[in-house]
Simulated scan of single mutants.
Amino acid sequence: MSRKTSKNNDLLSSVRKDTSPKIYSLLVDLVNDNREDLADLVLKIDYLLEYSSSCIRQKDFEEARESLSKAENRIKMLEMQKVDTEYIRYLYDGINNKCK
C-alpha cells in the first residue's frame, strides 16, 4: 500500500499550505494510520490555537481563555488515543502563558 501524501489525499492537499511543517507531519502520520478522524481533531486544535493567539493580540482575553479551554479538551482526547501531542502541547503552553 502506498503512503498517502498531499498528492493523493484530499485532506492533506487542502491543509498543506496552511499548517506548520510539524503539524503537517503529524497529519500525514495520522492519515497513513487510517485515523483521519484524529487528523480532523488536530486541525480543529490548530485552528483554536491560532484563534486564541489572535484574540490575545486583540486583547480579548476572555475569548482566548474560552478557546484555549476547548483546545485543552481536544488535546486530552488525542492523548487518550496515544497520539504524539508534544508539539501541540508546546504551542498550547506558549499561548496559554500569554493569556492574562
Rank of each mutant, 00 (worst) to 15 (best):
M1A: 05
S2R: 11
S2M: 08
S2D: 11
S2E: 13
R3Y: 06
R3W: 01
K4C: 10
T5C: 10
S6N: 12
K7V: 01
N8I: 08
N8R: 03
N9M: 01
L11S: 03
L11Y: 06
L11A: 07
L12S: 08
S13Q: 14
S13M: 14
S13V: 05
S14L: 10
V15H: 09
R16D: 07
R16A: 13
K17W: 02
D18W: 10
T19Q: 02
P21Q: 11
K22S: 05
I23A: 00
Y24E: 10
S25I: 06
L26R: 08
L27G: 12
L27W: 02
V28A: 09
V28W: 04
V28G: 03
V28S: 13
D29M: 14
D29A: 14
D29V: 05
L30M: 08
L30Y: 02
V31A: 11
V31H: 08
D33K: 12
D37W: 08
D37A: 13
D37M: 03
L38T: 01
L38R: 08
L38P: 13
A39M: 04
D40P: 00
L41V: 12
V42K: 00
V42F: 08
I45F: 02
D46W: 06
D46Q: 05
Y47T: 10
Y47K: 13
L48H: 06
L48C: 01
L49G: 00
L49Q: 05
L49K: 03
Y51C: 07
Y51I: 12
S52W: 02
S52T: 04
S54T: 13
S54E: 07
C55I: 00
I56Y: 02
I56D: 03
R57K: 15
Q58N: 13
Q58S: 14
K59C: 01
K59S: 09
D60N: 15
E62S: 06
E62G: 09
E63G: 01
A64C: 10
A64D: 05
A64R: 04
S67F: 13
L68C: 05
L68Q: 00
L68F: 01
S69E: 09
S69Y: 12
A71M: 04
A71I: 07
A71E: 09
N73S: 14
N73Y: 12
R74V: 01
R74E: 03
R74F: 11
M77S: 15
L78H: 00
E79C: 05
E79H: 03
Q81R: 13
V83Q: 10
V83F: 14
V83Y: 08
D84H: 04
D84K: 00
E86A: 15
E86H: 10
Y87L: 07
I88E: 01
I88K: 03
I88A: 02
I88W: 05
R89Q: 04
R89P: 03
Y90T: 11
Y92H: 07
G94N: 12
I95D: 00
N96H: 09
K98G: 06
K100Q: 15
K100F: 04
K100G: 11
